[in-house]
Amino acid sequence: MDLRISTVDADGQELKSLYRWLSRDGMLMRHAQVSFEQADRPGEMGGVFDLINVLLADASAVAGMGSLAVALKTWRGTRSRPAAITIEHNGVIITLTEGSEEEIRSLLDRLSPPAEGEPGDR
């Protein structure tokens, strides 16, 4: 499972801070590879933006998603004015603006892989 995480902040410092936080989270790193990358902006020639790529192994994707959700919520709690966090996977885009329990539950529901025997569509 490949997740692309970005933030909306003018200088990119919030995204860099989030990357450092995630890459130092022991529980998340048991289930994921985290990297800081640049990607092309869709529809713009030469435009790029920074993002965090989180790659979860299929076998541990559920545990990894839980660890990611906890890490995101904890990081947001350390910020005086946390930036909105956008997470994308297979065309599904979720934006966390508050980090509330409802947003975290929605993140987990919409991005977690289906349980064995469930249909693949969410």
Score class of each variant (00 low, 15 high):
K73N: 08
P42N: 14
Y19D: 01
L3P: 11
E116G: 00
L3G: 03
S60F: 11
S100Y: 11
G12I: 01
A39W: 15
E103Q: 00
T86Y: 12
R24H: 12
M1H: 05
Q13Y: 01
S23A: 05
I87K: 03
I93G: 09
F49L: 08
S100A: 04
P113I: 07
R24G: 06
D2T: 06
L111K: 06
D50C: 07
E98A: 08
L111I: 03
S106I: 07
L51T: 00
G12H: 03
G91V: 07
A71H: 04
H31S: 04
G46H: 07
N90R: 10
D50W: 12
G64R: 06
F36H: 13
A39H: 14
S60R: 14
F36D: 03
T7N: 05
M27G: 15
L3Q: 00
V70H: 08
L68Q: 06
S6N: 08
K73M: 05
A57Q: 14
G47F: 13
D40Y: 11
P42C: 09
L108S: 02
A69P: 00
V54L: 02
P114K: 01
N53P: 09
E116C: 00
R110P: 01
R81F: 13
V62W: 12
V8Y: 15
T97L: 10
V48H: 14
S17W: 08
G91D: 13
S100I: 04
A83V: 05
S60A: 13
A63P: 02
E44F: 15
V54P: 01
I87V: 15
I94W: 12
R79V: 03
T7V: 05
M29K: 09
Y19S: 00
M1S: 11
I94M: 06
D58R: 10
P113C: 02
S106Q: 13
R20V: 06
R81W: 15
K73I: 03
T7E: 09
Q13G: 03
L111R: 03
V70R: 11
M45F: 15
I52N: 01
R76Y: 07
R76G: 01
K16E: 08
S23I: 11
A71S: 09
R30I: 14
L3H: 03
I93M: 15
G77P: 07
M1Y: 13
R20F: 15
G26D: 14
P113T: 06
V54T: 06
M45G: 07
S106A: 10
H89R: 15
N53W: 15
I5P: 04
A57V: 13
D58N: 08
S60W: 14
Q13R: 03
I5S: 02
D9K: 07
A61W: 15
L96S: 01
E116R: 05
A83Q: 04
M1L: 11
L72G: 02
G91W: 13
W75R: 04
Y19F: 07
A63S: 14
Y19C: 00
E103Y: 03
L108I: 10
Q33E: 12
A69E: 06
G77W: 09
A115K: 08
E116K: 02
F36M: 07
N90Q: 09
G12N: 04
L68G: 04
A83N: 03
L108A: 00
Y19A: 00
I104A: 02
E14Q: 08
T78M: 02
W75I: 02
Q38C: 06
V62L: 12
G120T: 10
M45S: 10
L108P: 00
D25R: 05
R76L: 01
I87S: 01
L107I: 09
S17G: 07
T97H: 14
H89E: 10
V62Q: 11
H89C: 11
